[in-house]
Amino acid sequence: MARTISTRKRSLVDVLRLLAYLVALLSFAVLAVTGFYPVLILGEHISGYLVMVHATFAPVFAVCLAFLTVVWARNCQFAQGDWPWFDRIVQRVTLARGGDGESPRKRSGLGQKITFWLIVLLALPLALSILLSMYPLLGTHWQEFLLSTHRYTAYVFALVVIVHTLLLRRMKAKK
């Protein structure tokens, strides 16, 4: 009985995880289009209906990202075998005995883990830069700095998300 409940619970989390991931992907796509289209294609600042859509999807994306971070973080911990070269350096420095070397299966998630943590890391300046600008704390010069921070962090963030998604897809395909 306990086993049945446990299985059902896990599947609910899985469903939520999948749902959050899909909503996050959709939100990301909307945010990227509404954010980059006026700036990169039209050469203008984001404004009009685009800014409204952008601001509507931003909190949705933030919530999904926070949820996914919580549920994925444990799986994306770096393990000893993720970087054998580092392990070897440490062994030489400390003269400690290392493990038996990692199998290729375990090393395959490294890129995914790095991009995951990069996403989490970049999400902070991305969200906080625009959030800070909404409070009467900083003057025009800093407002412009915050907008630039938001913009350039967004470029890197988008690239990392795309790489992460591709790696995830490749891994799924391999499985």
Binding site: P59, L65, A66, V120, L124, A127, I130
Partner: peptide, 13 residues
């Protein structure tokens, strides 16, 4: 919402 989400991200990190 954004501030709360950022706080969660920061804490996990």
């Amino acid at each position: 919402v954004v501030l709360g989400s950022s706080a969660v991200l920061a804490l996990v990190l």
